[in-house]
Design a binder for these strands. Structure first.
Length: 729
DNA sequence: TCTGTAGGCGTTTTT
DNA sequence: CGCCTACAGA
């Protein structure tokens, strides 16, 4: 491997970050400064130039998407030499480690991974066992507290130690019960994946020694978003050789609410003596006004990283701003802008992204996208694997593979309805507790006791069903296993009998699940990992998917997502919407100074995604929970120097006269007025998205006028003239 | 045990 | 507003 080909195209700082291979290295990488590039080339350099065997390198990121891209790019540089390299997420890495050695901690290798829902059902169970009313105690709050403890690396004992009032003591107590329930279910929640791994390393030094010997070089991406227990995990792995390279940007720390601790990156130099620091301050992504505006905003934070970003791109336009009368107009404006830009500047829909603070805001944009026939994709929101029918199908697999999985069992014991209701389950559970057996075994014994009444037969049949599945699932491919489950359980039959559009949608989702399972391929197994069936690996993967993982940058669609999901991405045209007090910054997180600063960093992240054109929007009025609310423009807008903004910002007072404060450049209204004239049948027209077509038919008059058009590429479509943005071809 | 409906409640962001 | 839960009736 030629050294020059790996270092080629790197600027001097990037090059330094690649060449310092030994000892602790802190890379402070500003937005758009090429940090992924550095990570990729660093790995390639270690292997290709320094001759480090790839299996000695561990690179950790936060999303599978980021990991996948990094692995891909490394493989492109190294080819087959990359074999044995671990480029993965914290959570996946821990799962692989725990699959091997979780036995030490009282879990079996087949442990389940609990998502938020599963974990919540266990929290409720813990509350019940403490005789608490879930209505008074709010299980979600308790789950949240437990999660925060885990993020700090606290076991129940430590939480109890820190408790200084009755309420906290009870909560710590409940944490202990919850943890016991997890062990009984042979399950770990998200927080456990990391926490239990650190426990494993702490209590079993020979296990830790194994991995210490293995990984001589560790790289961590997005280090500003690591929490305490992740910090601890990294420290355990590298404390001897300290070949640790972390990359991050304190200004992009946006996960404190989830337990991330910026101190990890701020104090890195103190934690690791002799740290070398590289700053990447050249921004290759954004034009000047965008970068300057974003920097000015984040400079308002009391604590901020001391990076001074320099725009490498010349020229460019100012930041745009639009104040809409209401949320509907906001959405209509943005979508029309996108259509007009696609048409006038010959751009693809994939060049555009709309970012909002909360998922709920996606709706109005989705409506407008549908209305204008703009292809779009929504990242996040209701995730595919969170749909009830999908979770049900997977829960059957889980029970088949891990009969102790109580949360999965509760999900499916009566889905479809088979006469095993709440009381039956409660009595079986009691029996299980008394005998110290699993819930499934409790059901079995309940039926055998002769006290189950009319539930006796349903339970017997259910037991046989699970036995059958346990046999079948192990020997089939993931997709066959799912198909078998859906067939054998009567789940399909029930949905087919239903016949409603909702049932049809669910069937469609299940077909989608089967095909996702078909596409699943077992990656070249690591020689270090335990052998597992493909279905087990499929379940692991599903448990750890993130919102952005499914996003495809090549798809010809406009992307809609929350700002959190947008981190790490870039688009030529970015719209940041809903810039009103209470929404962005969000009311719930701007209570204290720290929360507000995180909101500001979030806005900074949103702005710095834009490459060419950044448009900010807010609405004076908004429908929320079905009623109208009036908004005040976000304080963040005023933190951008006016000279960087085209036109003027809204006045500060609420209720400024309509139109006066808003700047309607591009004149969205006239956008369709100019095509508002009559279009004769047979005319050749051009549509921004569908291309050129022939008008077949004109229906109606005035604003409701519809056109049937046969497009050369995509066939016949019916469009509302007023929104179609047609022009003569 | 199952199904329909009326109220209540929520929204921050997520591996 | 729309989803989910709790509850009443069969």
């Amino acid at each position: 491997m030629l050294e020059s080909s790996i270092l080629e195209g790197l600027n001097p700082e990037q090059r330094r970050a690649v060449e310092i291979t030994e000892g602790p290295l802190l890379v402070l990488a500003g937005a758009g400064s090429g940090k992924t590039r550095v990570l990729v080339h660093r790995i390639a350099y270690l292997v290709g130039v320094c001759g480090i065997p790839p299996e000695q390198i561990l690179a950790v990121t936060f999303t599978n998407k980021a990991a996948g891209e990094m692995r891909e790019r490394v493989e492109k540089l190294l080819g087959p030499d990359a074999h044995g390299l671990w480029v993965t997420t914290f959570h996946s890495a821990c799962v692989r480690i725990l699959r091997r050695d979780a036995g030490h901690l009282g879990f079996s290798r087949g442990f389940a991974i609990y998502d938020e829902d599963d974990s919540l059902s266990l929290v409720k169970e813990a509350l019940r066992r403490h005789g608490k009313d879930p209505k008074v105690e709010d299980p979600r709050r308790l789950r949240w507290r437990i999660d925060q403890w885990k993020n700090k690396g606290w076991l129940p004992a430590r939480a109890a130690e820190a408790a200084h009032d009755l309420e906290s003591e009870e909560a710590a107590d409940l944490y202990a019960t919850y943890q016991r329930l997890l062990v009984e279910s042979n399950a770990l929640d998200f927080g456990d994946l990391i926490l239990q791994t650190t426990q494993l390393f702490e209590r079993f030094p020979e296990v830790l020694a194994h991995y210490r010997r293995r990984w001589n070089y560790v790289l961590v991406d997005e280090y500003q978003d690591t929490n305490r227990v992740q910090y601890e995990l990294v420290r355990q792995l590298v404390s001897e050789h300290t070949n640790i390279c972390v990359v991050g940007d304190p200004n992009q720390s946006i996960y404190a609410w989830r337990g991330a601790n910026v101190r990890n990156i701020m104090d890195f130099e103190r934690e690791y003596p002799d740290t070398q620091v590289v700053k990447l301050e050249r921004n290759y992504r954004s034009t000047r006004a965008i970068l300057e505006g974003a920097s000015q905003v984040v400079a308002n934070n009391e604590t901020s990283g001391d990076l001074r970003l320099q725009a490498q791109r010349e020229g460019g336009e100012k930041i745009r701003f639009f104040e809409a009368a209401d949320d509907r107009e906001e959405a209509a404006f943005v979508v029309r802008q996108i259509l007009a830009t696609i048409r006038r500047e010959a751009r693809s829909p994939r060049d555009f992204a709309i970012f909002y603070r909360t998922n709920a805001q996606s709706r109005s944009f989705e409506d407008e996208m549908l209305r204008y026939d703009v292809p779009y994709t929504i990242v996040g929101g209701m995730r595919f694997y969170e749909r009830a029918e999908v979770k049900d199908a997977l829960a059957y697999l889980r029970v088949a593979l891990n009969p102790a999985d109580a949360a999965a069992l509760r999900r499916i014991v009566n889905a479809p309805p088979r006469g095993i209701g709440k009381t039956t389950l409660e009595r079986a559970d009691l029996l299980a507790q008394q005998h110290g057996v699993t819930l499934l075994e409790g059901l079995h014994r309940f039926a055998a006791s002769g006290e189950a009444g009319r539930a006796t037969n349903p339970i017997r049949e259910f037991s046989m069903l699970i036995d059958d599945l346990a046999r079948e699932v192990r020997t089939r491919t993931p997709s066959d296993a799912i198909a078998h489950v859906l067939q054998r359980t009567g789940y399909l039959k029930q949905l087919e009998a239903d016949g409603t559009p909702e049932a049809e949608a669910r069937l469609e989702n299940l077909r989608e699940l089967v095909s996702a399972a078909e596409d699943f391929s077992v990656e070249s197994a690591d020689p270090d990992s335990e052998p597992r069936t493909a279905t087990e690996l499929f379940l692991d993967q599903v448990a750890l998917v993130s919102d952005v993982d499914g996003w495809d940058r090549r798809a010809e669609r406009v992307s809609l997502m929350t700002v959190h999901s947008a981190k790490g991405l870039e688009f030529p045209f970015v719209y940041v919407v809903g810039l009103e007090e209470g929404i962005f910054p969000h009311a719930a997180s701007s209570r204290d100074a720290a929360g507000l600063e995180e909101e500001r960093r979030l806005f900074y992240v949103a702005m710095t995604r834009a490459m060419e054109r950044l448009t900010l929007a807010c609405a004076r009025e908004r429908r929320r929970y079905g009623s109208r609310t009036f908004g005040v423009p976000s304080r963040f807008l005023r933190e951008i120097p006016e000279s960087l903004i085209e036109g003027s910002l809204p006045r500060e007072q609420r209720g400024a006269p309509a139109g006066e404060a808003s700047l309607d450049y591009e004149h969205a209204q006239t956008e369709y007025d100019e095509t508002g004239s009559e279009i004769p049948k047979g005319m050749r027209v051009r549509h921004a998205v569908f291309g050129i077509g022939t008008v077949l038919d004109v229906q109606g008059r005035g604003p409701a006028q519809k056109l049937r058009i046969r497009f050369d590429r995509v066939g016949v479509k019916t469009l509302l003239l007023r929104f179609a943005n047609l022009e003569p071809a």
